[in-house]
Amino acid sequence: MLITARLLANRHPQFIARTVFVKNNNVDDACRMVNRIIGKEGILERFRLNQYYEKPFQTRRRINHERCKAIYNEDMERKIKFVLRKNRHEPFPGCH
């Protein structure tokens, strides 16, 4: 409730999102955590994309490439999982 009230009162409330407290004077860790958060949320990527105008043909190409990559990665992940699977009911398949 209080948070919603605060959000309604201020369109750009500070020190709520993307904030990490420093523990034990370990600034490096806190910075790394912040970087990780903004990297994971895609904020860095957005920032980089918006620095220069991306022409529509470039957008199309980028998105198509991302799609292909995602499909490839998904299949490859499945393949690797299959090859590296360890939980076999028969520990030595094909050895008898």
């Binding site: 500070q14 020190f15 993307r18 904030t19 407290f21 910075c31 903004i38 920032f47």
Partner: peptide
């Protein structure tokens, strides 16, 4: 330093 905040405008 108490906290570190990212304020990058996106």
């Amino acid at each position: 330093i108490v906290s570190v905040t990212d304020n990058t405008h996106v």
